[in-house]
Amino acid sequence: MKKKDWTENIICGIFLVLGLITVGCVLLISVYLIISGIPAIREIGLTKFLLGKEWAPTASQPRYGILPFILSSIYGTAGAILIGVPLGFFTAVYLAKLAPAKIKTVMESVVSLLAGIPSVVYGLAGMMVLVPGIRKFFNVPDGASLLAAMIVLAIMILPSIIHVSMAALEAVPKEYEDASFALGASPLETYFRISVPAAKSGLGAAIVLGVGRAIGEAMAVVMVSGNVANMPSLFASVRFLTTAVASEMAYSGGLHREALFSIALVLFLFIMLINAALHFFLKGHTANSQ
């Protein structure tokens, strides 16, 4: 009896350790990023680093201002949300509420296909179709621009927005809709004026998830955004926080390399904020549906 307790305790301990590995990974990533990101910020100076408008790490007088990257990331994400959210939202309402079963199954598999396509394939298609398209259509010298990045990101965040919004809309209690029908509202009025407000925290989660996806995407953006450290404007070639890290890590050294780690730290802080917001919305969602 005694011996059995012993082995049981050991096994319980082993599983506890396996469970805590996840927590360990998060701590390890945070600590490593902070340790490797702080030195460059201290050397350059926080305000100079965050608000400097010029990034010229290999110049004779190196300058490390990442404001262009921060603003490009924010504008790019905002653009992607502006295009992607309405598109995904209306599609989700149709699929969750009105679509015939057949169309719904087909579209669901189409959306999961979009979710599964690797980001480099989006980048490649964007590079070969969208970039020349923008150059011709708007008559600008180079189509690799913030606009191209926005459009590619908008398409890439569509699947997560549609999935999460559909789940939220399907969780709306049927009684709400029935009550609205009984009061004489037409189906569409009911779905948009009753179901959508009832699902608002789930829809909020969908948007936040989209923001997280868009701000963290690197490979597709690096392929279509032109990758020059300009201040953002719609047709300028820009560089995001993610792509700044991705494109220079291979050849950087010294303070330059440390500055790239600091950029990653800034990106990580953004993501942590977004995660906290997501957690908040999802909590609200489960509280609502109970």
């Binding site: 469970g19 805590l20 996840t22 927590v23 990974c25 998060v26 390890l28 990533i29 490593y32 990023l33 997280g212 701000i215 963290g216 995407e217 690197a218 993610t242 890290v245 991705a246 890590m249 780690f261 990653a264 990106l267 990580f268 993501i271 942590m272 977004i274 995660n275 997501l278 957690h279």
Partner: peptide, 20 residues
């Protein structure tokens, strides 16, 4: 704690994993 950690891990973008 474990569930929050798992949620955080699934939100971290892959470029950060690459660096880590």
């Amino acid at each position: 704690m474990i569930e929050y950690a798992a949620e955080t891990l699934s939100g971290i973008p892959s470029i950060i994993y690459g660096l880590a």
